[in-house]
């Protein structure tokens, strides 16, 4: 199987986010960078499918050359090579991003290197646009399943499992296909030391993509008004248990 995984370098945020002075971006001065949880699962799944069926996986990103860090992370897990669509770190919208990705895939196909499976995260953790994978599938006229949490491949067909409310839905598609996946698809492995060393010598192909242009312009970012203002410190250690029981009674969780 020939598999492409598309990832995005994003700030590794856990605590409260702060904004830059012009309010147009997240302040990343004190933040590391990573890929989203959905994408970690996409990379893991690509590696597992290659381990099972042979072939190779390629990882792709669009962004700044700093994204080499994330490409090497994916390659340290077993992805063979990488493609960097270097846009010098400009903020591209989903139309431009999907256009550039679809173009590369199309070019590789006509050069005799077609992909059987193209994986995306269901949505990016930062922008949450929910559409780059959808637009790529549309541009390439390929079947698409979103929100995938289980994959089974049999003879050129793929059964994708997703969870909908209280049910589980199965969708059978023929390959090639595009999937956007969600965390829970698998439990991603950690990179090994030999894996990390090997990743440094794996090839990264650089290309300069053309921006189509998205008609959306950020005016400003702001932090939502925190509606949880915090409340009562009931106490410390086991001595606070009496107070906890009182609260549980007050909330009607246990009988008075």
């Amino acid at each position: 199987m020939r598999i492409l995984v598309c990832i995005k370098r994003v700030p590794q945020a856990g605590g409260k986010l702060t904004l830059t002075e012009d309010k147009l971006a997240i302040d990343t001065k004190f933040l590391g960078f990573t890929i989203g949880p959905h994408e970690e699962c996409a990379v893991e799944e690509a590696v597992r499918l290659v381990e099972k069926f042979g072939g190779s996986a390629t990882v792709l990103t669009l962004g700044h050359t700093d994204s080499v860090e994330q490409l090497q992370f994916a390659m340290s897990l077993g992805v063979a090579d990488a493609i960097l669509l270097d846009n010098n770190g400009a903020e591209w919208g989903p139309i431009s991003t999907a256009g550039a990705i679809a173009k590369v895939i199309e070019e590789m196909r006509s050069n005799g290197d077609p992909f059987d499976l193209i994986l995306f995260g269901n949505e990016a953790p930062d922008s949450g646009d929910f559409q780059v994978g959808v637009r790529v599938a549309n541009a390439l006229d390929l079947p698409l399943v979103t929100g995938v949490k289980g994959i089974e491949v049999l003879d050129g067909e793929l059964v994708a499992r997703r969870e909908g409310g209280s049910t589980v839905e199965l969708t059978k598609v023929t390959l090639p296909a595009v999937l956007t996946v969600k965390e829970g698809l698998n439990l991603p492995r950690y990179p090994s030391l030999p894996g990390r060393l090997k990743a440094k010598s794996k090839p990264i192909k650089k290309e300069s993509p053309q921006e189509k242009g998205d008609p959306i312009k950020t005016v400003q970012l702001r932090l939502p008004v925190e509606d949880r203002t915090g409340g009562v410190l009931l106490g410390e250690g086991p001595d606070a248990v009496g107070k906890i029981v009182e609260v549980l009674k007050e909330l009607g969780v246990v009988a008075r």
């Binding site: 925190e226 949880r228 915090g230 409340g231 009562v232 410190l233 009931l234 106490g235 410390e236 250690g237 086991p238 606070a240 248990v241 009496g242 107070k243 906890i244 029981v245 609260v247 549980l248 246990v254």
Partner: peptide
Amino acid sequence: SLADYAVVGDLHKILPKLIEEL
């Protein structure tokens, strides 16, 4: 600072006592 009620301490000391009391 976001919770309505907060207790500082080791959950493995607090929860057993809470279970006992309940």
